[in-house]
């Protein structure tokens, strides 16, 4: 469904991604794990066209997308929940959700999705008119995921959704991710919390210094000695 072929991405003269190739099949949860500065966020930003790939190709549902602008990529159904959540701080919860549905015109369906989200995260319904910047970290993460769901993603890209959250909230977030996947949304999950990520994923990639160094089923990676040592802290 989503495929990267030999993607190289640069910040100025510094090369952050070296020939990154990976693929995500429809219906799967695929995770990308790696240490700080490995290039995980850059991979997502290249997919979304924010930091376009200088070399290589990115395909989505049989079409090349690496030459498209970010808004065209969003229109294809590739939706990202970025690192740090990036909630619009001086917009209300409701307005943040509206921004998620920015490119949609099907008013009735938007209303239905909104009800679904308020069902999924009742706290957001309570905080509808509160400014995004005043939410707690966990609430912001829920809002960020909800805002992405408002776009009706075909593939949802999540960048470290567990970052900075309490263990109980992390558990809740991972449950929701699984639930969203079961309901038919493909998920590409970037995580440093490798254990949790591999537990819910079907497939995993390991990234080091801008290169993919390992690719296997999530179950195999969980028991792989190298992965255990480097990323699972065992």
């Amino acid at each position: 469904m989503l495929e990267l072929k030999g993607v190289c991405t640069f910040y100025g003269k510094i090369q952050a991604l070296h020939e990154v190739s990976l693929s995500v099949q429809e219906g799967e949860i695929v995770t990308l794990i790696g240490a700080n500065g490995a290039g995980k966020t850059t991979t997502l930003m290249s997919i979304c066209g924010i930091v376009p790939a200088k070399k290589g190709e990115i395909w989505f549902q049989g079409e090349p997308i690496h030459k498209l602008s970010p808004d065209q990529i969003v229109a294809k159904g590739i939706i990202q929940v970025p690192e740090g959540r990036l909630i619009f701080p001086r917009m209300t919860v409701m307005e943040n959700l509206d921004m998620g549905a920015y490119l949609r015109k099907d008013k009735a369906e938007i209303k239905r999705d909104l009800d679904y989200i308020f069902d999924l995260f009742p706290i957001l319904a309570e905080r509808k008119n509160q400014l995004g910047g005043t939410l707690s970290g966990g609430e912001q993460q829920m809002l960020a995921i909800s805002r992405a769901l408002m776009a009706r993603p075909k593939v949802l890209l999540l960048d470290e959704p567990s970052l900075g959250l309490a263990p109980l909230v992390i558990k809740q977030i991972f449950k929701i991710i699984e639930k969203i996947n079961k309901q038919g949304t493909t998920i590409f999950l970037v995580e440093q919390n490798a254990h949790q990520a591999l537990k819910i994923a079907h497939k995993g990639y390991v990234m080091e210094n801008g290169r993919i160094v390992m690719e296997d089923s999530a179950a195999n990676l969980l028991t792989n000695e190298d992965v255990k040592k480097a990323y699972l802290g065992l």
């Binding site: 979304c48 808004d71 921004m99 920015y102 490119l103 776009a151």
Partner: peptide, 8 residues
């Protein structure tokens, strides 16, 4: 950046 990611 987030506006771009919303499709603006």
């Amino acid at each position: 950046k987030m506006a771009l990611l919303c499709g603006v």
